[in-house]
Amino acid sequence: MLYVNFGEALLDPMAGYEIPCNMMQIFSLKLAKTPINSGSIQLYGYIAARDEVDYMLNYVFKRSRDDPIIVQEGSIIEMTGPKRGIALSCDVLLEFDMRIKNGDKETEDLQLIDGISEFNGLHMASRPLEIRIDGNCGAVDMSSALVSYAVGAVVEVAISDVQTGFDLSLSSIISLVEVHEVHKEFQLYHGTVSESRGLRRFVIAVTLDTVLGLKFKIGSKGSNSNIERNCSFEAKLNGYASHHINLEFASILVKVTWAAVPV
Results as ranks from 00 to 15, higher is better:
M1W: 03
M1Y: 01
Y3Q: 07
F6T: 15
G7Y: 12
A9W: 08
L10G: 13
A15W: 11
G16Y: 07
E18L: 13
E18V: 15
E18Y: 13
I19W: 14
P20Q: 06
I26A: 09
F27D: 09
P35D: 10
I36L: 01
I36F: 07
N37K: 11
N37F: 04
S40A: 05
S40L: 07
Q42T: 02
L43S: 05
G45V: 03
R50K: 14
D51K: 05
D54N: 09
M56P: 08
N58W: 02
Y59C: 02
K62I: 13
S64G: 08
P68Q: 04
I69W: 15
Q72Y: 05
E73P: 04
S75T: 07
S75P: 03
I77Y: 05
E78N: 04
P82W: 01
R84E: 09
R84G: 07
S89F: 00
D91I: 04
M98C: 04
D104H: 13
K105R: 15
T107D: 14
E108P: 06
D109H: 03
Q111W: 06
Q111T: 10
N120Q: 15
H123K: 13
A125N: 14
L129K: 15
E130I: 12
E130M: 12
E130L: 10
I131G: 08
C137N: 15
G138F: 07
D141V: 13
S143L: 12
L146N: 11
A150Q: 01
A153Q: 05
E156R: 05
S160Q: 12
D161T: 08
V162I: 07
Q163T: 05
F166M: 02
L170A: 04
S171K: 12
I173P: 02
L176G: 00
V179M: 03
V182E: 15
H183A: 12
G191V: 02
T192H: 13
V193Y: 03
V193W: 00
S194H: 04
R200S: 00
R200V: 00
R201T: 09
F202N: 10
A205P: 02
T207I: 03
L208W: 08
V211L: 10
G213Q: 02
L214Y: 02
L214P: 01
K215Q: 10
I218H: 05
K221S: 15
G222T: 14
S225E: 15
S232T: 10
F233C: 11
K236P: 06
S242I: 04
H244G: 02
H244D: 12
I245P: 00
I245L: 08
A250K: 02
L253N: 09
V254P: 06
K255D: 09
A260N: 04
A260R: 05
V261S: 09
V261M: 08
